[in-house]
């Protein structure tokens, strides 16, 4: 039962990830005939709202290091996720084995 529950939960997450991709339509071309962005980061959108509310606001500090390109940024994000997932996988592997050993003895 438990195993199937997890399966359904993961399927639910996949559905939640795929649905927006299917449902959200690409915005029409802007007045300048440039393609409008879709699935941009919410953090960046918040930045735009700040400049709308206070057009004269200038950020007073710049990021120390900026990833030189989108590819490098995605490399670092993937690395972050891989480190985390690797650790969780290792832990679950040892926990499962320990549970089996306990059951046998």
């Amino acid at each position: 039962m438990n195993r199937y529950q997890n399966l359904w939960l993961i399927l639910g997450v996949v559905a939640l990830l795929v649905l927006p991709l299917v449902l959200v339509e690409k915005p029409a071309l802007g007045p300048d005939q440039k393609e409008a962005g879709i699935f941009a980061g919410a953090d960046d959108q918040a930045k735009e709202v700040v400049t709308q509310i206070q057009p004269d606001y200038a950020p007073w500090f710049q990021p120390v290091l900026e990833p030189p390109s989108g590819e490098i940024a995605s490399l670092l994000f993937a690395l972050q996720a891989a480190l985390g997932a690797g650790f969780i996988g290792y832990y679950l592997g040892t926990a499962v084995t320990a549970a089996r050993v306990r059951q046998k003895s």
Binding site: V24, F39, Q80
Partner: peptide, 15 residues
Amino acid sequence: FVLSALKMPSVTGSC
């Protein structure tokens, strides 16, 4: 670490 690295699409058309 894992979850905060995963940028996911949402129904609002942003991530």
